[in-house]
């Protein structure tokens, strides 16, 4: 499954992620607020934001 949103949606990424993904991010100490803040500092340039593995699932989030 691939979901495409306008890049500005990064500001509300928290609302797009389900609770299991957010729990997994917490476990891996992936700080979503810090990621969004870094995206702003870098001027919303295309970049990989984070990758997660949950069981057999691979979860990728990026800007392009």
């Amino acid at each position: 499954m691939e979901l495409t949103q306008y890049a500005s949606t990064i500001e509300h990424l928290d609302e797009l992620l389900d609770e299991d993904v957010k729990r997994r991010m917490d476990e891996q100490e992936i700080d979503l607020n810090q990621i969004v803040s870094d995206v702003r500092r870098q001027g919303y340039v295309p970049a990989s934001l984070f990758c997660l593995t949950e069981g057999t699932k691979q979860f990728d989030v990026w800007l392009e």
């Binding site: 990064i10 919303y44 989030v61 800007l63 392009e64």
Partner: peptide, 12 residues
């Protein structure tokens, strides 16, 4: 054009 247009989320 230096800015990204889209946010992508992929689950495989």
């Amino acid at each position: 054009d230096s800015m990204a247009r889209y946010l992508k989320i992929r689950v495989v």
